[in-house]
Amino acid sequence: MNPSTTKPLTVLGSINLDIIATAGRLPTAGETIGDGTLSRQPGGKGANQAAAAARLDGAARMIGAVGNDDAGREMLDALTSAGVDVADVARRSTPTGTALIVVDSEGENQIVVCPGANAEVALDGVAFAEDEIVLSQLEVGLDIVVEAARRHPGYFALNAAPAQPLPAELVQRCDLLIVNETEYELIPELSEARLVAVTYGKDGSALFRDGKEVARAAGLSAKVVNTIGAGDAFCAAFVLGLRNGLSDEQALAAANAVGADAVGQASSQPELGRLEGYVTAV
């Protein structure tokens, strides 16, 4: 498929302000750790995937909601700067969603998400074209994801994270589901899915069709700075790779390369090159 003749990837999902404390290690229950470094940056699984898609493909479309506050305006500015169309992002009186994140020296993290305006995402006035691809996640209401899957006549992909029980209707509707290895174990319904991509961190990724492995690609070595946006970058890259006509193995390998690039950057919405550069790199 010629990417120049296709619509930009549409992402339905969350938009958060990430407030990040970086420390030497993660605290245990009830423990206080000093000498942390505080930062803030754009985040949310949906926004991360939209920003990655725009950088990899030149454009993307975002469906979501932010608060009518400084944080919301900051998040929209970041998406627009990445090349994302935010015309379908609603402004709500509820504060913009916020994620509180602790990251250790190895890039591992603990995250608490406060949904805010993400809990008020709606599809009023949003149209879907048959020839566009929609990618969603589960940081917005499951009912909205199901509604989008029903209304969209074309290709529908779901990053089933955070893990939760999925209705059979949604699993059967999805053309593609993407999860990490932990989520794959926590969502038994995925065994009934037509196509599931599973990421294994440094060990790469695999693709399962009707529960049977049909493709696998090795991981790439990378210096880990921040893992928060790596899975989101993988999702955008893999969906775009399949859209552009790559084989299953090529799409997995290119997405692994994008994820490896992402973990080496501090931002949850890392600077990425065009997808074709990652294809030729592997």
Rank of each mutant, 00 (worst) to 15 (best):
D261Y: 03
N226P: 09
P153G: 07
L272I: 00
Y278E: 10
S205V: 08
T96H: 12
V258T: 12
E130Q: 14
C114I: 12
E132T: 00
G154W: 02
I20K: 03
R55M: 15
A161S: 15
A99G: 13
G259D: 00
V84K: 03
A99R: 05
G58I: 10
G64H: 00
A255Y: 02
A149W: 04
E130W: 05
R173P: 04
L190Y: 09
L166S: 08
V112Y: 06
A222W: 11
D131E: 10
H152R: 04
D70M: 06
R216I: 04
Y278D: 11
N256L: 02
Y278M: 06
Q265Y: 05
A29R: 14
P188M: 12
S105P: 02
A71N: 15
L79H: 03
L123P: 08
L38D: 06
V146D: 02
I15K: 05
A163D: 05
G219R: 12
D248W: 13
L56S: 03
C235R: 00
T182H: 14
S14N: 02
S268W: 10
I63Q: 05
A117R: 11
A59Q: 04
D232R: 07
Q265P: 02
A161H: 01
Q265A: 08
T32I: 12
L138E: 08
G273M: 07
A148P: 09
E130Y: 11
R73I: 04
P42A: 04
A23S: 13
